[in-house]
């Protein structure tokens, strides 16, 4: 058994209405401790209203070497960008 604590990824929501964003990672023995550590490491300057932690080993990541097949096909399909609509000012930020 490894003596190192497992690695956790930390996500923090900065304000109500915003989504959680990945802010970094840390080590902790369990999820509760990961939340406490996240509070101490990543919210010292009043950054958050909500935190998520997830053990890094639970994240399945795409392989960087697959970036050609994964992303290049969409390069040529500019019609997928909804840039042809005029957004009324009243809508505000989207």
């Amino acid at each position: 058994m490894s003596k190192e604590w497992p690695l956790w990824e930390v996500f923090i929501r900065g304000q109500h209405g915003m989504s959680h964003r990945h802010v970094g990672s840390l080590h902790a023995a369990d999820a509760e401790m990961a939340l406490k550590n996240a509070r101490d490491v990543y919210t010292r300057r009043n950054e958050g209203v909500s935190m998520w932690v997830v053990e890094s080993s639970n994240i399945t990541a795409s392989a960087p070497s697959d970036k050609g097949p994964l992303y290049e096909p969409s390069n040529s399909k500019i019609y997928r960008h909804p840039t042809f609509f005029d957004i009324p000012d009243e809508v505000g930020a989207m």
Partner: peptide, 11 residues
């Protein structure tokens, strides 16, 4: 002993 505890203690 670890970075996380170091910051927590400083806080």
């Amino acid at each position: 002993p670890v970075l996380e505890e170091d910051i927590a203690l400083a806080n």
